[in-house]
Design a protein around this nucleic acid. Structure first.
Length: 597
RNA sequence: GGGGGCGUGGCCUAGCGGUUCAAGGCGCCGGCCUGUCACGUCGGAGAUCGCGGGUUCAAAUCCCGUCGCUCCCGCCA
């Protein structure tokens, strides 16, 4: 084997594989990397050597260098090699236009094997689907695959652009603690036992919310952090137990100022990283409008299929389900799918099954003739009006449904997304940003029978609605806003409360007594009494933003070491049981439920 | 907590209304090949079809249970 103090045999890398161009022709270069592919033609061997930056074709000719050629015959996938040779222009017939380095190749006269590889459990050089737990188990191999390398590199460039921009407009990057006080509100906390304080626990932060507000009270004016956040909730494709926020807070601002900074940030990042100009100002939509027109508080504006109310049209019809819905305060709505009027009965069933619990009805005009299962009950005139209201022409399909407004909107919103996917109505490589504003301050939680904050309890009421806090708190709008991109919630923020009295009042609305409030948030309430500036902020979901940029549905594709859907890491095996000694030191007894493990 | 999908050599897929159906591609091993680039070509090794039970003369295939992965709902201030 090699001498451990000089594993490179005196060779030093001169270039990255992926950077070789015609300008390097004639140069002697040393490359180091992995054997991506090997094509053995007998007396001539081509080896693609790969590093982070890309591929370089290396040529081993039995007539040119006997020893290098002999060693090249033994190379296999993912062996680590050092090659020394001369960059030559490829002949016109042998140029590979699919490769950035395809105009040149390296004729190797010295090859050094730095480390061999066992047969691979997953192939690095093939772009085939591999079971994701396999990819996670061998994540170091998965990350070598050029697509994954590209994702990680793009994520770096993205955060770099964020830092550059925020620095340029006066933000300070400040770290906040990872071991924090647990707050029972919000998501479930990840807890860390204290050795020094038996029976007491830290929590990992769900977000740096309180600390960033306190930084504003501290006079630091503009703060940001690429902040890791932890929430012990069930996972989704776009939700991991730990994730990263671009967390920001500013003093002396209103909503428009926050929008200005975020729009500037997004525009800078997209032009730097994606070479894409974001249209500014970004569109705005009221929460209520989003719910009514798109059945979602994060509408995807890349396609139509908007929801329309049919209440006025179907009122007084003989169709009992609609009538009953209307008389009990519900609503009848519809959406239109272009060109799908000739849908078969079977396909109607499939479409209806896209959203469980939703009963759907259909109408269309084909060859001038009205078609609908409700034709008899509603009458031709009403069906005609429905088609008109939806703007449905010859061959278009109208899908109707009835129910209580809130749940119907949600179901039709989901149906809208499923239909868009099914009929491929979503344009690729389009970025539709949207501000959703005027969220309610509170939502009513059926389970506990109490008001809960729609955003979080530090959100300021909309100034026009603050007087309703005592009389009709559910009507109070919040000075809160979400940034939506292609139907994903990618940022959420608000103007904060900065006065003790208001903060105590809002905490009271969600059922915290003065004593509770002081016990849990006394430090914040106290701080507000020592000259807290008006302030507000926002947090952007970095993982989601990067995933959208690289065109992936799952944020696992842009995390180097993600957890699986059971919040476990197949590579390291985390989480694991710990020894009794470790538990003793932390004063913990563990009780595992029957049947677990 | 609830619902859907999936589990077949190292990897990806086919077979899944019952009986030579364990097939193909990638990879791996060996031979040939000096302009390939998903190289080609010839040969070879490699799987008790996640696990357990049941139905049957007969199960990868049907049924039940279980485990794992995944998507969605709930949950995520």
């Amino acid at each position: 084997m090699q001498d451990g103090t000089e594993p490179l045999g005196g060779l030093r890398r001169t270039h990255r594989c992926g950077e070789l161009r015609t300008e390097h022709v004639g140069q002697e270069v040393v490359l180091m990397g992995w054997v991506h592919r090997r094509r053995d033609l007998g007396g001539l061997i081509f080896v693609e050597v790969r590093d982070r930056e890309g591929l370089a074709q290396c040529v081993f000719d039995s007539a040119e260098s006997k020893s290098a050629f002999a060693l090249a015959e033994r190379l296999r996938s993912e062996y680590v090699v050092a090659v020394e040779g001369k960059v030559l222009q490829r002949s016109p017939q042998t140029v590979n236009p699919n490769l950035a380095t395809g105009e040149v190749e390296v004729h190797v006269d010295r090859l050094r094997l730095l480390n061999p590889s066992r047969e691979l459990p997953i192939l690095v050089a093939e772009e085939q689907n591999v079971d994701e737990s396999k990819r996670m188990q061998y994540r170091y191999l998965d990350l070598r695959r050029p697509r994954m390398t590209r994702n990680i590199v793009l994520r770096h460039r993205f955060t770099k652009a964020v830092r550059d921009y925020l620095d340029s407009v006066g933000f300070l990057e400040i770290e906040t603690p990872m071991l924090v006080r647990s707050t029972p509100e919000g998501a479930r906390d990840y807890l860390v036992p204290s050795r020094v304080h038996p029976g007491s626990f830290y929590a990992l932060p769900q977000s740096p919310q309180l600390f960033k507000q306190l930084l504003m009270v501290s006079g630091l004016d503009r703060y940001f952090q690429i902040a890791r956040c932890f929430r012990d909730e069930d996972l989704r494709a776009d939700r991991q137990p730990e994730f990263t926020q671009i967390d920001m807070e500013m003093s002396f601002v209103g909503q428009e100022d926050v929008f200005g900074v975020v729009e500037g940030l997004v525009a800078h990042v997209w032009s730097t990283v994606m070479e894409h100009q974001v249209a500014r100002p970004i569109r705005r939509m009221h929460y209520k409008e989003a719910a009514e027109r798109y059945g979602s508080d994060k509408p995807d504006l890349r396609f139509g299929l908007e929801l329309h109310s049919l209440d006025e049209i179907v009122r007084g019809s003989e169709f009992t389900p609609f009538e009953q819905t209307l008389s009990s305060g519900g609503t009848v709505k519809a959406l239109m799918v272009p060109g799908r009027g000739a849908i078969s009965r079977k396909e109607q069933d499939e479409v209806g099954a896209l959203v469980s619990g939703l009963k759907t009805f259909y109408a269309s005009r084909q060859q001038g003739e009205l078609k609908s299962s409700l034709l008899a009950k509603l009458g031709a005139e009403r069906v005609e009006k429905v088609l008109q209201a939806l703007g449905a022409g010859e061959g278009d399909l109208v899908i109707m449904a009835a129910g209580p407004a809130a749940s119907l909107n949600g179901q039709l919103g989901r149906l809208r997304l499923e239909l868009a996917r099914r009929y491929e109505l979503i344009p690729a490589s389009k970025f539709e940003f949207l501000w959703v504003v005027d969220f309610p301050l509170f939502a009513f939680d059926e389970e506990s029978g109490r008001l809960v904050p729609e955003h979080h309890p530090f959100t300021s009421p909309h100034p026009e609605d603050a007087h309703l806090l005592d009389s009709d708190p559910r009507q109070v709008r919040a000075a809160a806003y979400d940034l939506v991109l292609n139907g994903n919630e990618v940022a959420s923020g608000s103007i904060r409360i900065h006065q003790r009295e208001m903060q105590e009042k809002v905490l009271g609305c969600i059922g915290l007594s003065i004593e509770d409030a002081r016990q849990k948030f006394g430090f914040l309430l106290d701080a507000f009494e020592y000259g807290a500036p008006p302030h507000g902020g926002i947090a952007l979901g970095l993982d989601r933003l990067v995933a959208i940029c690289v065109g992936c549905d799952s944020i696992r594709e842009v995390l180097a070491f993600p957890k699986n859907a059971s919040a476990a890491d197949p590579m390291t095996g985390a989480p694991v049981e710990v020894s009794q000694d470790q538990l003793d030191i932390l004063h913990l007894n563990v009780r595992v439920p029957q049947g677990a493990r």
